[in-house]
């Protein structure tokens, strides 16, 4: 841990080096229009003795947005694009804390991420890690850091809130189909105005 921190510290000293690492990570990521897979989410809420677990599938489409389908503990569907969020409760405001970067994260769009966050990266032979700290004051009051890690894919996402709650999402069975299924297409249809 200490070594890693030191490494990060040195990386921070040299912005050009940090940019180079980012470029390396970006180069490693598989770039396709569609990414889909399973997710396991574990939320550790300060007030609860045990974590909240949920599982389901996700679909990322480069221009259309994200379908987030939870299967357990309750079946529910969440659709999000850059400016719209649809849940079981109807259309919601996209929370500043997370909404904008959610899609960028799933799609590995590092350029979009660097707009609102300070990025610190480390790249090893097997895996890379990326830490995001919000630049915006209001965001800072909610989100401490977000950690992304992966190899050729994004494998894990960890959100540490300033209030102490931690969300950990891991992604498995990631594939890159050439086309959306009819069902996925219908879901995305609901997002378009």
């Amino acid at each position: 841990m200490l070594i890693k921190a030191l490494l990060l510290f040195f990386l921070l000293l040299d912005p050009s080096y940090a940019d180079a690492v980012l470029a390396q990570i970006a180069a490693r990521l598989v770039k396709t229009d569609i990414t889909q897979g399973d997710f396991h989410q574990q939320k550790q809420l300060k007030v609860l003795r045990k974590p909240l677990l949920s599982t389901g599938t996700f679909t990322y489409h480069q221009s259309k947005g994200v379908i987030w389908k939870t299967q357990t503990p309750v079946v529910s569907l969440l659709l999000v694009s850059g400016s719209k969020l649809l849940t079981g409760q109807g259309e919601q405001a996209v929370p500043a804390a997370f909404g904008k970067v959610f899609k960028a994260m799933l799609g590995g769009d590092l350029a979009a991420l660097s707009e609102g966050f300070t990025l610190t990266a480390s790249d090893q032979t097997t895996a890379w890690q990326l830490a995001l700290t919000p630049k915006d004051e209001m965001l800072k009051s909610v989100i401490g850091t977000m950690m992304l890690s992966g190899d050729t894919e994004l494998r894990q996402l960890e959100i540490r809130e300033t209030g102490g709650n931690i969300t950990l999402i891991s992604f498995d069975n990631i594939t890159h189909p050439a086309q959306l299924t009819a069902e996925q297409q219908a879901d995305f249809e609901r997002l378009s105005p």
Binding site: Q41, T70, S76, L78, T87, Q92, F98, I143, N165
Partner: peptide, 9 residues
């Protein structure tokens, strides 16, 4: 549903 949503912070 709300609590397990990735947007439910």
């Amino acid at each position: 549903e709300i609590l397990s949503s990735p947007f439910g912070q």
